[in-house]
Design a protein around this nucleic acid. Structure first.
Lengths: 334, 334
DNA sequence: GGATAAAATGTAAGTGCTTACAAAAAATGA
DNA sequence: TCATTTTTTGTAAGCACTTACATTTTATCC
């Protein structure tokens, strides 16, 4: 069943059928209806490849993430897919892993697959080593790129993010406000957002006149952190460092810290306060439940898709937007 | 840059370039190399739409899940994407939700998008009401369908699953073996696999001569279960029912049960044993850690992609495969 | 009513590949 | 060497659409 069959049955030319299909307004109402009836009756759908060839687009958006099984990424994927679907876009999903070469290959792949645009989930795609961001600049020459929770100044790149600096500062201030001064910051990534968080922690301390001690900023060296490994990491540190609170870059790390505390027999939050980040389901699994930062992921995703649709139709790149997170106080803090 | 440019620069016809591109062996080694050199030098990639139009395929596989943020689905998506990518396939992701109409629309969409095949994650896609499976039969007429963890006998449909019946039976037997006879089974889906699990629970009881009491098989009426809601659900039941163990259809429900027990002041596992299902990250977040069933998801995903590649190349549908799960004993059981 | 403008429709030339078939070149065998 | 087979290459016809431009039809205005 092709456009020729439809045109024949409807007694019009293929151009007219194509016009009806593409919502052109130079078709008389009667003709339009006649064509639509035939299309309906034949259950006809235009061939996507031919359409793609003609329009140089298949209404497809690439979604790039490091790891789709990551809680943050999987939620983002879900929200984004739902919104894109409402707008008649289809999603090509790529899980690049954390290596630069693979990210580059995947993004290239998407460009070659002729996606209309790509959304990059998580700040892992932006490095503080500018040379490593070249692949982004390169791809942005071909299609608009949207960064979810990363900030990068580049032609044809749009950013929507949560103010991780402010949120972490707020979390740190909350702890300081309870008279706690020895606060361990635990993180496991050098991504843009991870460093923003760290710097929020530092600013809070500095503002209150507290010392910045590098040994209180611990970098856990694995991206997808295993809870036991995190607990072991903190155990290994034990003795060398005295602290009364842990602020973590994500809920996973925070729960690893809880594991450590529980093993050591510490009472939470009395002996140790803990704050996570992301307000993921993990934060409600533990006992006591985790105080964490809600980074308004759903809002962010809805916003980014809305913006994307705008970009594709208006061909104009708006200003980046920064949303605010919110500290959710639960059982792991006083 | 098109195939014409390449053919011109290499001094051959477009047919020869196309042959090189598609790995045809009727090209002399010298010509092949010359063409490859030009392709390399020009950084040429064939237009995917034109290619799709010619071959009626874009080497794309649809992945269907109800909810990509679900832990089971997101892990599966990740494993599947990685394997497909290795085989030069691209993934179109669809999150259908739990309604029949949407599942149907999405599957139709994939067929119209001309994916080579589709993988359906989770047994939510198969109903025990046969009429509701019509959309599967219909789609299977167009493309091979692969079901991950669901069993459905239909032309052009392949199934790979974990023996949920056996695993749940094993879990139940484990509890019974500890002298516990009042065991609550908690589930939240009527999918194929959910019912298999339930029936595994029942079989174990029956085999040991224990009574089957319907009030001990509780159906929690939400798909994406909120922990508090689960705990409340069990609280509401309290008093009417006496049990010493909970076996749940997934880790989420199990942790909901833990929340309930903790609120009630029960000691786990002494006052109440709990077993989850899926061996998800949730099972390690809680304290004590959750005894659960590992349903070999990674194995299953690798297997299903390998099979898919086979189906697409040999055009032949193999026998379904059933893997075995494994009970992981942790802190919530004696 | 007829010239003119506007709306509706059709024709045909892309879009960039694949591949059947034809043709040319190279290899083989007597 | 030349006929025959095999290998390599080229030509041209799809594939199923979109759309610029041409043409026809309808509406408008004096």
């Amino acid at each position: 069943m092709t456009i020729y069959d439809i045109s024949e049955k409807a007694g019009v030319s293929i151009a007219t059928v194509s016009r009806v299909l593409n919502g052109s307004d130079n078709v008389s109402p009667q003709t339009r209806q006649r064509v639509l009836d035939v299309i309906e009756a034949c259950d006809y759908t235009p061939n996507v490849f031919a359409r793609g060839l003609g329009l140089n687009s298949m209404n497809t958006i690439g979604i790039l993430c490091a790891d789709a099984s990551d809680l943050y990424a999987s939620s983002a994927i879900y929200y984004i897919e739902q919104e894109l679907h409402k707008n008649n876009y289809t999603c090509l999903l790529c899980c690049t892993g954390y290596g630069l070469a693979d990210k580059q290959k995947y993004l290239n792949l998407l460009v070659n697959q002729k996606v209309d645009s790509a959304i990059l989930i998580g700040s892992t795609f932006i490095s503080d080593n500018e040379a490593e961001n070249e692949y982004i600049r390169e791809a942005a020459k071909d299609i608009p790129l949207l960064l979810l929770n990363a900030d990068y100044d580049c032609e044809n790149v749009y950013c929507a993010l949560c103010d991780d600096f402010k949120s972490t500062m707020q979390a740190t201030n909350f702890i300081i406000g309870q008279g706690i001064e020895d606060i361990l910051y635990l993180y496991n990534s050098n991504s843009y957002s991870a460093l923003k968080k760290l710097s929020g922690y530092q600013s809070a301390l500095t503002q209150k006149g507290l010392p910045l001690r590098t040994e209180y900023m611990q970098h856990f060296p694995e991206n997808h952190a295993n809870l036991t490994a995190i607990a072991d990491f903190l155990s290994a540190l034990d003795g060398t460092l005295k602290y009364d609170a842990v602020i973590a870059g994500d809920d996973n790390l925070a729960i690893g810290a809880m594991k450590f505390a529980q093993k050591k027999g510490l009472s939470i939050p009395n002996d140790l306060s803990i704050i996570g980040y992301n307000n993921s389901i993990l934060s409600r699994c533990c006992e006591p439940e985790l105080t964490t930062v809600d980074n308004c992921l759903e809002t962010l995703c809805h916003h980014i898709v809305k913006t994307l649709i705008g970009i594709l139709s208006d061909n104009e790149m708006p200003q980046k937007v920064i949303f605010s997170g919110e500290l959710i106080k639960r059982g792991t803090t006083l």
